[in-house]
Every structure is written in structure tokens, then in C-alpha cells.
């Protein structure tokens, strides 16, 4: 390694600001394909359960309340999720998406990791669970 190269780098570094960003005061823009928190669009869901079947870390539970009136509950366990986006790919109705902006997901309580998505339900006719642990 030549001495001149080192000197060049030293000179450049002397006038350059540190490359470290002062997070959380400076937040870097996320890449367009960043895979953050899972969001569920209840309108299009048909309750096929493919997301539950394909999830490698059993982070999704889908409870079918009534398939005809499209009443479902989706439980999303954030602390199990590996953000692989297989559920997004498996969903044929395109109702799942991984957020680009919601990626600061640390929490102090366990409860904050268990997210329940639900559409407004008038009455509850029957309940059939598709918990991956029971399947």
C-alpha cells in the first residue's frame, strides 16, 4: 500500500464530515422496495388463507367469521414476522402489502407486537379458526 494513497485519504477525511448519520435526528430515506410492517386491505380479502399457509414464521392468523359476507379478522404477529414478503406474493387478491415507511417497529410491551386487523362486523354467525399451530 503506497504512502501517497494513505495521505490522500487522510487529507480527504480531515475536511469531510463523518459518514455516520445522527439517527434518530437524521433519518435516511428508505429504499423503494423496503419491506416493513404488513398492512391488510380487508375490502378485497376472500379468506383463502394462502398467506397463513405460506408464512414461514407463522406470523399471520386469519379468523373467518363469515365467508359469504367477507367478515374476517387478521392477526399479525409483528415479532414473528421475517419480512420476507411471501404473503404479499401469495395473495392473489393483492390485499397484503409491506409498508415502506413503517420500519421502526421496536416496542416495550409484547402486546404492541400483536396487531389485529378487522372490518366492522354487525353480527357473528360462526367462528372457524385457521391458526397455523392447529392446522
Amino acid at each position: 500500500m503506497k504512502f501517497g494513497t494513505l495521505l490522500q485519504d487522510l487529507a480527504r477525511s480531515a475536511v469531510h464530515n463523518p459518514i455516520t448519520e445522527k439517527y434518530p435526528f437524521e433519518v435516511r430515506a428508505t429504499p423503494a422496495r423496503l419491506r416493513g410492517r404488513l398492512n391488510w386491505d380487508a375490502e378485497n380479502c376472500i379468506g383463502c388463507g394462502l398467506c397463513v399457509k405460506d408464512c414461514p414464521s407463522q406470523a399471520i392468523e386469519l379468523i373467518v367469521i363469515d365467508k359469504k359476507t367477507k367478515q374476517f379478522q387478521l392477526f399479525y404477529h409483528l415479532n414473528r414476522c421475517t419480512f420476507c414478503a411471501q404473503c404479499v406474493y401469495s395473495c392473489r387478491q393483492e390485499c397484503l402489502s409491506l409498508s415502506r415507511d413503517e420500519w421502526e417497529l421496536a416496542a416495550l410491551n409484547q402486546e404492541d407486537f400483536h396487531i389485529q386487523y378487522e372490518r366492522e362486523v354487525d353480527e357473528v354467525p360462526c367462528v372457524a379458526a385457521t391458526d397455523p399451530a392447529e392446522a
Binding site: P31, A32, R33, L34, R35, T82, F83, C84, A85, Q86, Y89
Partner: peptide
């Protein structure tokens, strides 16, 4: 990271092809 959203464990593959 720009390609897949992740620095490691890119998850670019799916059975039968690629995601991105």
C-alpha cells in the same frame, strides 16, 4: 438493498422464479 429492500436475506427467489 436497492434491488430487494434488504441488505442481507434478500428473498429475491420464489419457487418458479424471482420476486423483483
Amino acid at each position: 438493498e436497492r434491488f430487494s429492500g434488504n441488505r442481507v436475506n434478500y428473498s429475491a427467489n420464489i419457487l418458479g422464479g424471482v420476486k423483483y
